[in-house]
Design a protein around this nucleic acid. Structure first.
Lengths: 348, 348
DNA sequence: CCTCGGGATGTGACGGGTCACAATCAACCG
DNA sequence: CGGTTGATTGTGACCCGTCACATCCCGAGG
């Protein structure tokens, strides 16, 4: 039933049909000058008739450019930049190869992923929440191909686009302080992830700056389930808290559920702040106050940067920083004993 | 700063270093016989030293095989098969190109997407909840390259892997009947999507079979928000209902929120059944009873099928059918006036 | 001693674009 | 009317693996 692999027309085929040389066809197809109008017309006719399309492998071979980018992700988050990357890559004329990376901590596994696409791609986008590889290591692994690291540590000296997690973490903590909370617990993300780490430190720093003791903390893994068990563990500690900072929205969802099962109301008894602002967050019960990371912007900025590196590689290594934004909804209760207002996170 | 595009070693480079011909190197690299052990050793040394990797574009050009597959998606759902496809494609030695398709209804836009990867890929995986293109149209568009359609209409005569949406819709409706519900409303998905259509018809069919009137129905778009407004609209109709069938889990989430805001309890006042079983569904409040579609299985089955088509293309056109599974949680209340038990959806 | 078989190794053409350069031809100038 | 200019068109080498085929060498058999 399946068609017998149709033989595709080549430049020569078109040339024969149009009665010119393949070079002339090439000029027409690539919009070069020095072709007489009537010749051009004749060639275009032949191109349409044979439905000629350039063979990208052949182009790749001669020009060394493939117009293919590779996106390396090692986790499917809810807010990952994939959709935006796909969109903007296409907009810029690139095709995206997407690869998953099982173990981002080992250079070996990174090497394996890169080997598969050796000499086939123009550049790499790596989503690397684990800062295990240095700029030098990555440069070596990529063998001179330009790359941009997405969502890595703020301050890393490598071509990258990142959210300022410190700022985001502070915004969340300061919001709770401003709403009168003084006993703040935390369900943080997996501490191997630098972003979880930074948010955790930001939370702690804000409290210390205001002379407060950090409340109890549990470590989750960014999945709903770990928010659920995390909140249960927090309750078991017997340490009092009036609010929870959650490492992301999903864990916040799990936590809300656990609190409710324990007979607590959200936000009347316990307030909660999430992180990410996934699409559902506004429809949680209660609607979740959270810190938005705009992954569309992240994706576009990353492709932008990579495309620029590929086209004129003289750009100096830099880090492009995006700022998260506090989205206030209904999961935080203002407490009656208001303290003084707490300083803003630095301006975006 | 950026490295000056390192020149990659070729077969000839390795041959020179090892003092043999490029043909011998080729034999070593491709594990062919007729190479003396000590020669092989010497070549391998040179390969390692130069870190030689075959140029995939050149291989593509000569063999006509690229070991690249293309996944065409036109929507980022929560349960899309992307992760599984990525995983299994890699497992089978394929690299995945992922493309988004903005307007799946127009052959022109499909053509544009396929043109970009013309002659570069071994096969296509198309996620096509809109059954707008016939087998013949697709065959033509793909120009003889094998393709598998994912999640299309049950019964379409084309190579495809699908869930039996009819069966899933029936399971959801029958569950509500079994739990004693007789007035069942629906928030269905966008009716351009065949899956939404089929589930809607299944719901209606089950009710009619049991001599019941379908309750009120509103149409959503699979986003949380439309579930929220949808439930509000259902309440405004003034038609009574004790349960809602939702086209997916996300809309169910929105609906639950709207019901609660209207002063109704879930499931005590209104029961609800979702569709998909996304990861968060178990942590909704209440935990959502839903119909699971296992997208991991879907992804694997699709890649399986496509790989088989590519390797021995004599496989007859067929449709591989997967069955959804009812997951009972807490969002459906058993009503006091139990009717007789309602028949099973046909066996999986 | 010559031939034959078979492993080891090398040669050359090819795939389909790309590009530097050569060839052709008309018009235009002095 | 030869020489120059410039647009038009064509030629051939190249990119890097792949594969069919040729060559070389050694030992075995007649």
């Amino acid at each position: 039933m399946s068609e017998p692999q149709i033989r595709q027309a080549t430049l020569r085929d078109v040339a024969d049909l149009a009665g010119v040389s393949y070079q002339t066809v090439w000029r027409v197809v690539n919009d070069r000058p020095h072709v007489a109008p009537e010749t051009r017309e004749r060639v275009l006719m032949a191109v349409r008739k044979l439905d000629y399309r350039p063979h990208r492998a052949a182009q790749m071979l001669t020009t060394g450019r493939s117009y293919i980018l590779q996106l390396v992700i090692f986790e499917y988050g809810y807010g990952d930049p994939l959709p935006a990357v796909l969109h903007w890559a296409r907009e810029y004329g690139y095709t995206m190869v997407v690869t998953e990376l099982k173990d981002p901590t080992s250079p070996e596994s990174v090497r394996a992923v890169l080997r598969e696409t050796a000499r086939m791609i123009d550049g790499l986008l790596m989503v690397m929440p684990y800062p295990h590889l240095s700029y030098e290591a990555l440069t070596q692994l990529c063998r001179g191909r330009p790359f941009v690291v997405v969502n890595t540590k703020l301050g890393s000296r490598m071509p990258s686009v990142v959210f300022d997690q410190w700022n985001g973490g502070r915004q969340a903590a300061e919001h709770l302080l401003n709403m009168g909370h003084r006993q703040i617990a935390e369900i943080c993300g997996p501490l191997e992830n630098f972003d979880a780490q930074v948010r955790d430190r930001a939370w702690r720093a804000v409290l210390v700056e205001h002379g407060l003791e950090p409340g109890p903390r549990v470590v989750g893994d960014y999945e709903v389930c770990s928010g659920y068990t995390g909140a249960q563990k927090l309750l078991q500690t017997q340490q009092p808290f009036t609010a929870i900072l959650s490492g992301n929205d999903l864990m916040a969802l799990g936590a809300i559920r656990a609190l409710r099962e324990a007979g607590l109301r959200v936000p009347e008894d316990v307030s909660i702040v999430g992180f990410d602002d996934i699409a559902e967050a506004a429809y949680f019960d209660p609607p979740l106050t959270t810190v938005r990371q705009d992954f569309d912007v992240l994706g576009k900025a990353s492709v932008d940067y990579l495309a620029a590196l590929i086209e004129h590689q003289e750009i100096a290594v830099q880090q492009r920083v995006l700022y998260p934004e506090l989205i206030v909804r209904k999961s935080v209760q203002r407490l009656e004993t208001p303290g003084k207002e707490v300083g803003q996170a630095q301006e975006t």
